[in-house]
Amino acid sequence: MLEIKNITVKTTDDNKLILDKFSLTIPKGEIHVIMGPNGVGKSTLSKVIMGNYKYKVTKGDILFKKKSILDKSTEERAKLGLFVTMQDPMAIDGVKLSEFLKTALREKEGDVNLYDFINSLDDAAHDLKMDPSMLHRSLNKSFSGGERKKSEVLQLKVLKPEFIILDELDSGLDIDSLKLVCKNINDYLKENSDTAVLIITHYPRILEYIKPDRVHILLDGQIKKSGDRKLAEEIESSGYLSINEVEEAKNYE
């Protein structure tokens, strides 16, 4: 579904190299994880996939359903079915969550049946144990960290994307909220079995609740190692340093 082919990514402002010869393929219906320590470009990757203005792809290509999306705007990529739950979702004063979602849905599907929309919004809020009054408050304004993450998942449930990036979903969530949010995502994936997911995380905790097919370790702008779920367990016990040491030993040989 998503193929990232040997991309080099630099910052638009000062040409700083962020990702170098980075490749990753995620077939439909699969859940992949990118793990890595702070500052290796994990969150940047989610922004690059969504076409954020702060980054430019200088080499390589990104294909979604076999078509390049590099010349597509952020809006067009979202309409194709890409969605990212942001690590730190923005608060937007004066724009109500319900109105924002209604606008997004109208842009995607044309006419929106107001009755169906309100029902789907209420159902999603109920499933996520969100206070319904939050739907009519300014988007993310005065929301706690956990409420912001629930708001992101609520948007996902209403907009129904085909490819989901979960960027540090577990940050700001207590254990009960994390379980609830992950249950909602798993339920969504059951109903939409072709949907592919890319989880970006520091810690393997979230992988107890959303089971990945593949785990990739990102270091120095490149994937250094890939494996199954056991790789995440190795990282939990040995840390990222062990990956570096293995790679350095290989290079030395």
Binding site: M50, N52, Y53, S73, T74, E75, R77, A78, K79, F83, V84, M86, P89, M90, I92, F100, L101, T103, A104, E107, K108, Q155, L159
Partner: peptide
Amino acid sequence: DDVMFYLTSRGISVSK
């Protein structure tokens, strides 16, 4: 600009 990115990342056009 980050607010615009957030809104457009949900499929909302720049004018909307």
